[in-house]
Design a protein around this nucleic acid. Sequence first.
DNA 1: TAGTTCCATATGTAAAACCTATAGATCAAG
DNA 2: CTTGATCTATAGGTTTTACATATGGAACTA
Lengths: 288, 288
Amino acid sequence: MELRHIRYFLALAETLNFTVAAKRLNMSQPPLSQQIADLERELSVRLFDRHSRSVALTAAGQVFRRHAEAMLAQAQQAADEVKAIDRGTTGILNVAATSSVLFSGLSTAIAAFKAENQNVEVIIHELSPKEQIERLELHRVDACFLRFAPEEKNFLVTRAWREKVGLIVPPGHRLASRKSVRIASLRDEDFVFYRLPDSAFATHLQSLCVQEGFAPRIIQQVVESFSVVSLVSAGLGIGFVPETVGRNSAAKVKYLDIIGSSPTADVHSLMRNDATALARRFVAFTTH
Amino acid sequence: MELRHIRYFLALAETLNFTVAAKRLNMSQPPLSQQIADLERELSVRLFDRHSRSVALTAAGQVFRRHAEAMLAQAQQAADEVKAIDRGTTGILNVAATSSVLFSGLSTAIAAFKAENQNVEVIIHELSPKEQIERLELHRVDACFLRFAPEEKNFLVTRAWREKVGLIVPPGHRLASRKSVRIASLRDEDFVFYRLPDSAFATHLQSLCVQEGFAPRIIQQVVESFSVVSLVSAGLGIGFVPETVGRNSAAKVKYLDIIGSSPTADVHSLMRNDATALARRFVAFTTH
DNA sequence: TAGTTCCATATGTAAAACCTATAGATCAAG
DNA sequence: CTTGATCTATAGGTTTTACATATGGAACTA
C-alpha cells in the first residue's frame, strides 16, 4: 500500500465516479481503475460497489475512508511540522545558564523569545559552567550561557552581550563611600572569589590583580555571583561581581566601578556545531 | 511522499546505518540512499546527519519519526479493520423487527450473537413491517425481521424460523375451556385483526377463513400482536396470534391450537442484495 | 434501436525504482 | 604515514510499474 493508493481512493470516495476522480487527479481513467483494483486486491476486500451506472462505498470502504483521511492528514502534518522545526519556529529548546546570567537579562530574553515564538518551549537548566559544557556535549542542552567560554572545544561561541565587572564591599567598609576604585588599591583586602581553577572568570580576575602587582588574598571560594554578594554582605570580605548583580542585589552591599584596567564579565553563548535552527535563532536573538 | 519513503525512513532511523537498513529492507544500499535523499528533498529538510562514520537523526528527523510510526500504524490498522469488516466479525448492524418478533426469540438471538461477536454492535429498530421495508431500501437498516415478507421486491428473503399461529380468547369465552379449535367453527365470532391491507399476515389469515367458508367479522384492526392480546384480554373479541405471543403473554387470555388448516406466522429475514458480510452472518445465525 | 455514459481491459510508452560497480571519505591498525 | 576496512554517494544500465491511448461491454436514455 502506498499513499498514492490512499489519494486515489479518497478522490474516488468523494466523487463516486472514476472518470471525474481521474480528471481531478490529473490522470486518465484506466490507471485509476487499475490502482483502485490493486488496492482492493492487496487488502483482499472490495472497497467500492460498481454497479451499472453508480459507484458506492462498501461498508469496508466507509471504514477505510476514515483511516485514509487520517493518514493523509498525518502526512501533511508531518511535513508541516518538520519544516517548522527546520526553520526553528517550533520545538523544544534546552537552555543552560548560571543563575547570575539569568539575572543579568537572560530571563527576560527568554520571555521575549517565547512571546515571539508561541510554538517554542524553552526549558531552562540552571547549571554551573562546567556542567553546562558537559551537558552540551551530551546533547542534553542546546545552548549554554556563561561569562567565560572555553576556547579549545569545537563549539560555536558567540559573545551575547557585554557586561562590566565591579567591586562590592560591605556597608561600613573603608571604601563604602567611594564611587569607583582602582584594582591596585585593593592589595591588602580579603577577597571572596570564584572557585579556582574551575572558573575561567576567576582565573581572569586573578591575573588582573597580578598585573597590578599583587596576588589577591582569597579567604573563600564560591561558584555563584550571588554567593559572593551573600558573603560580602555578611562582612567576610570584598568581591568582584558583574555590574547587574552588584547594582541590583537585594542584599546590603556597596557597588563600585573599577577604573583603569576594567575587567569584563561578558556573557557568551555556546552551541554545538550541529546546532538546530531553533538554537541558532535563539542565540541570534540574545546577541546584541 | 509515499509510504515506501516512510518504511525506508523508519528502517534507517532504527538502524542508523544505510547498509544495515537496506539489508533489512531486502534491497541494496544505493537505492535506499536515493529514496531518503528524495524524501529529504521533497520536505526540503535534512532528516539525517551523515557524518564521517555515523548517521544520526536531526531534530526534524526525530519529530518526523513519531509521525512516520503513526502513519504506518494507521495503515496497518486500516488493513486489519477493513478485513474484519469484510469478514463480518466487526461493525455496526442495524436490525429492524416488530416487537412480537423480538419477543418470539429475536431478542435472545441478538444477545447470543453479540456474545459471540464482541466487536459487533447491534442497533435494534422496532418498526412496523411497512417502515422496515422502507428503511431497508434507504440503507437505514441492514436486516429486517417480520412474519410475512413481500415477494415482489428485489431482496434476499430467508425463512428464519417456523412459528405456528393459534387463537386467543378472553377468559369466560365459550371456547375458553377448549385446547384446540377448527377455523370453521369461528364463523360467528368477533375478531381483533391485523390491519388490512398493510399486513400480509392479515391477508393470509383472512383468506384462510374464506377458504373455510366465511368472512371474519372484524371489529378492530391493530398493528401489533401484543395489541391483539390486549384487546382480546379486555373482551372485545378473539384473535389470531403467533404461538409464543399467545402462550407467554402476561395478560389473561386463553390460547388454543388450530387444527385442520393450521396457519403459520413464520419469521422471515430480509436483506438487500448488497448486504454486508455482517448482515449475512447475522441472518445465517438467526436461521434455523 | 441508436446514442451516450461509464467502467474494465489490452497494449504500448515513459518514468522511476532498483541493481552492480565504483568513487570518495573516514577511521583503525600496522 | 600508509594500508585496509567500512560506509555513503554517484554513475550507468536494467527491470518494474505507473500511466496514456484505444477499445470493448454493460446499462441507461431518447
